[in-house]
């Protein structure tokens, strides 16, 4: 069980402020969606939380330890990171990729690799090379490689964005299910997926957190319209409200 606490993160690059004095506290369990317009700093925040980028100032604590003080290896075991794009330079097989993920942990049995291959229904694909896989298969392979060590924290950057809707639902469900007994933080572009599947939604804009609330509370919040610079119609369905964006001619009236 590992919580994740960020304190006053600042990150600037080329004159632009990507993270602006951002603080955030995430418990040891839960499914959390991060939403926000392009350039809000969502991916940057995720990379800083994963220890892939260093902030200019501020700290991240993983459990009771400072992220910057962790060794690369123990950080990689504690935090799973799923990138937005993954394009390996060498055309490895499914088995080889999962095994590379497994080698993060020094006490992992062969069973774990077999088990994760089974969980993600990759049995028939073990010897297939990355270049021959479909988008949905690639997503499952990447999930398997990241989750094979069963990290207590998972940070995922829009891993499903380019998939068709069924595979997207598969991936999102896998990620949120981990939130039951672990921490699962996902950058989500599809707002309806964010509000429908995640317990907590964090909305970012210009390197800051604008709103941080349970999904059901945030969906009616007018700040949603302001941050995305559209007017949302909340369409009631049996499954809760669904958002439909309507362009506003002039955004001046939206604080």
């Amino acid at each position: 069980m590992t919580s994740l606490v960020a304190d006053r993160l600042v990150l600037k690059r080329g004159g632009a402020t990507l993270l602006d004095d951002l603080s955030l506290s995430l418990g040891a369990t839960g499914s959390v969606a991060i939403i926000g317009p392009n350039g809000a700093g969502k991916s940057t925040l995720l990379k800083v939380l994963a220890g892939i980028e260093r902030p200019l100032s501020g700290t991240v604590r993983v459990g009771d330890r400072d992220l910057a003080a962790l060794s690369s290896a123990s950080r990689a075991r504690a935090i799973g990171f799923l990138p937005q794009y993954f394009d390996p330079h060498w055309d490895l097989t499914v088995q080889e990729l999962v095994r590379l993920g497994a080698e993060r942990s020094d006490h992992l049995t062969v069973d774990a690799v077999d088990k994760v291959i089974d969980t993600f229904e990759l049995d028939g694909l073990g010897r297939r090379r990355w270049s021959t896989l479909s988008g949905g298969e690639r997503a499952r392979v990447l999930l398997a490689a990241v989750l094979v060590v069963d990290p207590p924290v998972l940070l995922a950057d829009e891993p499903a964005a380019s998939l068709d809707i069924r595979h997207r639902l598969d991936v999102i469900e896998t990620l949120t299910r981990r939130g039951i007994d672990r921490l699962s933080v996902v950058v989500v572009h599809d707002l309806d997926l964010a509000f429908r599947f995640f317990e907590r939604v964090i909305m970012m804009d210009q390197g800051r957190i604008v709103a941080d609330a349970p999904a059901a509370a945030l969906i009616d919040d007018p700040r949603l319209d302001a941050v995305f610079k559209v007017r949302f119609e909340r369409l009631e369905t049996s499954d809760g409200p669904v958002l439909r964006a309507v362009k506003v001619a002039d955004s001046a009236g939206l604080g």
């Binding site: 220890g51 892939i52 690369s72 123990s74 990171f81 990138p83 590379l100 990241v146």
Partner: peptide, 10 residues
């Protein structure tokens, strides 16, 4: 695996 994934894998 690429620099980002390599860092993520420790």
């Amino acid at each position: 695996l690429g620099e980002t994934m390599a860092v993520a894998f420790g």
